[in-house]
Amino acid sequence: MGQRKVGDTMTTPPEPGGGGLDPGLSAIMSERRKLINLAYRLLGSLADAEDVVQETYTRWYAMTQRQQDAIESPSGWLTTVASRICLDLLGSARARRERYVGEWIPEPVPDPTEWITGRSADPADRVTLDESITMAFLVVLEEMTPAERVALVLHDVFRYSFAEVGEIVGRTPAACRQLATSARRRIRAAQSPSAPAARQAGIVRDFKQAWEAKDIDALIGLLDPDATAIADGGGLVSAGLHPIEGGAQVARYILAIADMAPDLTILERTVNGQPGLVLQLDDVTVTVMAFEVAGDRVKHIWGVRNPEKLRPWTTG
């Protein structure tokens, strides 16, 4: 994964021009982006990540000034609290997912330059894009136990030592090391070697053009014979309730979408740091598609249609 280069991007420096702020407050608030990034990777939901960070800061400001001053590392305290809240949420997430209508896909995020929200677009709410944010990686995280997920993300992505991870999750450093090892094994088993970024972009562009031309042979040629397509409507909009399996079946499914929505506009966009597609009707984003490209073929397609997961992609 090349995690070592990832960890250095996760702490947001204080905003320039903030000289009027109390230095202590500025230092505390500068941790917000790191906490958003951590919680999003742990939960796969930007909305839930925002709630976790809000609750973390609520707990900080519920303390007296003396209690705050007694904390040697406010940054470490915030990370610990946010991680433990996430761990609690992950424990109940499986039950919630079982009640979810259809397939559950992590919430997609756009390139920071394309971030759109109906509320103020706070830069601190934007997710830093790197190899730990790809849809393929987040989907594998979903298959892990909560402890595996937290140990892997804290250690491999955010570069916390296993001793620090152990303090956060309430386990020994050795146990945390084993959890991370198990998590990495899951990743290796589930993920195919990624094609270079330029090659991925070319494959996705060819896919878009074949889709627009309704060229089923070209689509089948771009899809791995064992390709899968998964849609997430959350019961709020129409979407396939089960994965579509097989390249030819996926190609037919894709063309059926075009037939049902002849006015569909297909745009090339960055989705979770990789080339993807955004589908719009009347300038409204209705689907965000993420791809896993292995070699010269599309291996997996994830299409998020649940409007509650498309807030960063839509206006209003």
Rank of each mutant, 00 (worst) to 15 (best):
R33A: 06
A294K: 08
Q178P: 00
E212D: 05
A231R: 11
I257P: 01
E131A: 15
D48F: 00
L46P: 01
W104Y: 11
Q67A: 12
L267H: 00
E114M: 14
T58C: 01
L46F: 06
M260D: 13
E292C: 07
Y100W: 12
E114D: 15
A136S: 14
G91W: 00
R205P: 00
R126K: 14
D217E: 15
L152E: 13
I187A: 08
Q67V: 03
P262G: 08
I168F: 11
A231G: 05
F162N: 10
Y57L: 10
G295R: 08
N272T: 05
V204L: 02
R33E: 02
P123H: 02
T285C: 07
T287I: 12
R99A: 15
E164I: 08
E148R: 05
A256R: 07
S83L: 06
D232S: 10
G202N: 13
A190W: 05
E131V: 15
E245V: 14
Y61L: 03
R177G: 15
R186F: 02
L43H: 01
T11Q: 13
N37L: 14
D88V: 08
Y57V: 04
Q280I: 10
R305Q: 13
G295Q: 09
S73H: 14
G273I: 02
Q178F: 12
G7H: 07
E55I: 11
R311I: 13
T134G: 12
R4G: 14
F162D: 06
D22K: 08
E15F: 14
Y61D: 00
D51C: 03
L267T: 05
E167Y: 09
E143N: 13
G221D: 00
S75N: 12
L264N: 07
V298L: 09
P312K: 11
A70L: 02
H242C: 06
Y253E: 11
R199M: 09
W77L: 10
T228N: 08
E107N: 09
R41D: 04
V153Q: 09
A136P: 13
G247W: 04
T117C: 14
L154N: 02
Q54L: 08
I216G: 04
T11D: 12
I244M: 12
E212P: 01
L141M: 13
T80K: 10
L138P: 10
Q68P: 03
Q68E: 05
G20N: 13
A47M: 07
A183N: 09
D259N: 10
R32L: 06
A39R: 01
V52K: 01
G316Y: 09
A294P: 04
E131D: 15
P307N: 03
V81N: 05
S192W: 07
G202I: 00
R94N: 11
E143S: 15
I36R: 13
D206T: 00
T181W: 06
G246I: 08
D215F: 00
S182P: 01
W313H: 05
R269S: 10
T128S: 04
G24Y: 06
P14C: 07
W104P: 04
P193I: 01
S73M: 12
T80P: 02
